[in-house]
């Protein structure tokens, strides 16, 4: 029961009252949509909703360091993840330095508080994606775009896949476009939440930013961001990332972070917190 009270409070304070951040993300999606639409119309292409999503969540092709060809960061992909992680970074430490401290004393449920924060982190990330998807869905409906999540090789004009493309005519990338970017943000959010308790929120955000930037530069299963790039999926390129492995590793990371955080928080000094 206590858990639900905590969670209800977190949903109100950490999601409803942060509506401006959802609007900011919706603006980013709107700008990205209009940009892709202009590019598609310029060459007479009619993209599906899946192809729009591929342009936004697709990421960037595997980078092969070559003299004269410096790495170019996938800003839209980075912004999508780092904005959500930025918006969710400070809620827990702020709550712990204020109202949260009181609720922990009075309820005596430290672990309940912690698991409520973990649930909030997951729900908040899901909500940010839900807003993005709703925004994309509404824009597609308004512009008469097919709601199919299938992509065709035409989309490679906008997000080139590099070498070793698996031949296909049409491909349904629902898990790579919907589930994996969301799971990446959730697992990095959980890592960030745990690090912000164990070390500091500043270090936690630097870790998230570094993981995502390194993921965009180097293709490796150890860099989780790679799973969130549909263009590096093994269904698109021969030496790509496997979605199942990504799902398992991201769920494992989230569970480990929640458990580590719970262990740390049981004996955490909540009184001596300063910025």
């Amino acid at each position: 029961m206590k858990y639900f009270k905590f969670l209800r409070f977190d949903l109100r304070e950490g999601i409803l009252k942060k509506y401006k951040s959802y609007l900011a993300l919706a603006c980013l999606i709107l700008i990205a949509f209009l940009d892709i639409q202009t590019k598609a119309e310029a060459v007479g292409n009619k993209l599906t909703l899946g192809e729009y999503m591929f342009c936004i969540y697709g990421g960037i092709k595997r980078y092969v360091p070559t003299m004269g060809d410096p790495f170019k960061a996938p800003y839209l992909w980075l912004l999508n993840h780092l904005l959500i992680l930025y918006f969710t970074l400070n809620y827990t430490p702020t709550d712990l330095n204020g109202f949260g401290q009181q609720t922990i004393y009075r309820s005596g449920g430290r672990l309940t508080w912690w698991f409520s924060k973990c649930s909030w982190q997951i729900i908040a990330s899901v909500m940010y994606y839900a807003v993005s998807w709703l925004c994309l869905g509404a824009l597609s409906a308004l512009n008469g775009i097919s709601p199919s999540l299938e992509i065709t090789p035409t989309v490679f004009i906008y997000v080139p896949p590099g070498s070793g493309v698996v031949p296909f005519d049409r491909l349904n990338l629902a898990s790579e476009l919907l589930l994996l970017p969301l799971l990446t943000t959730v697992s990095l959010g959980m890592l960030q939440l745990t690090l912000s308790i164990i070390i500091k929120p500043q270090v936690a955000y630097i870790a998230s930013a570094a993981i995502l930037i390194m993921s965009s530069h180097t293709q490796s299963p150890l860099l989780l961001g790679n799973y969130a790039m549909a263009v590096r999926s093994d269904r698109i390129i021969t030496e790509g990332m496997n979605a199942s492995a990504g799902i398992v590793s991201m769920i494992a990371l989230s569970v480990i972070c929640a458990a580590l955080g719970a262990l740390k928080f049981r004996k955490y000094d909540i009184l001596c917190k300063e910025e």
Binding site: I31, D35, T38, K39, A73, Y75, L76, L78, L79, L82, L83, Y86, L89, N90, P93, T94, P201, Q202, Y205, A209, E275
Partner: peptide, 27 residues
């Protein structure tokens, strides 16, 4: 009035500039 937002605001703004310049040049 948020220390974390203070430290990371220029970083996030720089990412936005990086995305915007591609947008401006392509459009």
């Amino acid at each position: 009035k948020n220390i974390v937002a203070v430290i990371f605001a220029p970083f996030v703004a720089t990412l936005a500039v990086g995305y915007s310049e591609n947008l401006i040049y392509s459009r």
